[in-house]
Design a protein around this nucleic acid. Structure first.
Length: 231
DNA sequence: TCATTAAGTATGC
DNA sequence: GCATACTTAATGA
């Protein structure tokens, strides 16, 4: 187990109000683990015995329908808590978390949740704040799915990933983790064929540039226009 | 407008 | 060289 430094947590919202010594206590009780791309950190319906913090990498949060197809509910970026079933009064995980890229996460036993929220100022409020933000985002994409045409949904999905993980390159802003057409169709409720056609067309128009599992948005503004922000 | 089917090419371990 | 990712056209709801 590598030695963990306090500076890992000091700047993250759930810990930003804490003393150095408090962060040390929290870190001393954490387990750090690395996850290969494609690995599940935990699965929907399983016993929620731990909660997690993503230090590095990206996660897909996935729910499976009875029919067998899966829906990508949201993505987790570094610095975010996840698998916080105890905050939802649940004893099983409501969704599956998969490493979209190689990732590193800390985790603690759920038994520590009540202790953390009680002892550390700001931990609880920050946790519920991120939960609230996630709920809002899910509701937004839900109404988007119900009301918008496929092209707009795919444009929105790309923009969301860019906003969450985008890094600037020479040609534009690239999505920082591997994404397939299938992944995007799982986020937008369409087929990989439709996503492929849209991306091909946008590439021809100079809006995006993509290779296998890798997408760069070369003209974010036009993608925003396609996403149908009203105006 | 979009899913489905089907049949192909490209890419990377 | 095989599995996986991706492309494209045709058809029909």
């Amino acid at each position: 187990m590598p030695k963990l430094d306090e500076s890992l947590l000091a700047d993250l919202p759930p810990f930003s109000l804490l003393e150095r010594s408090q962060i040390r206590e929290i870190l001393d009780r954490a387990v750090s683990r690395r996850y290969e791309e494609g690995t599940a950190i935990f699965r929907e319906g399983h016993d929620a015995d731990r909660f997690f913090l993503l230090l590095d990498g990206y996660l897909r949060v996935v729910r499976s329908t009875p029919g067998g197809d899966q829906v990508i509910v949201l993505h987790i970026s570094p610095g975010q808590l996840f698998g916080i079933a105890p905050a939802l009064q649940r004893d099983t995980y409501p969704a599956t978390s998969i490493a979209a890229a190689e990732s590193i996460a800390l985790s603690w036993p759920v038994s520590l949740w009540s202790e953390f929220t009680a002892r550390y100022p700001g931990f609880a409020s920050e946790s519920y704040k991120t939960l609230g933000q996630r709920l809002g985002q899910i509701q937004e994409t839900l109404t988007e799915m119900a009301t918008q045409a496929v092209e707009k949904r795919v444009a929105c999905a790309l923009l969301r990933m860019v906003n969450q993980s985008g890094r600037k390159t020479g040609e534009g802003i690239e999505i920082a983790f591997p994404v397939t057409r299938q992944n995007i169709s799982d986020m937008t409720g369409t087929t990989l064929h439709t996503v492929s056609r849209l991306l091909s067309a946008w590439q021809k128009d100079g809006i995006v540039s993509s290779t296998r599992k890798h997408i760069v948005v070369t003209d974010p503004h036009r993608l925003v226009v396609l996403s149908g922000v009203q105006g």
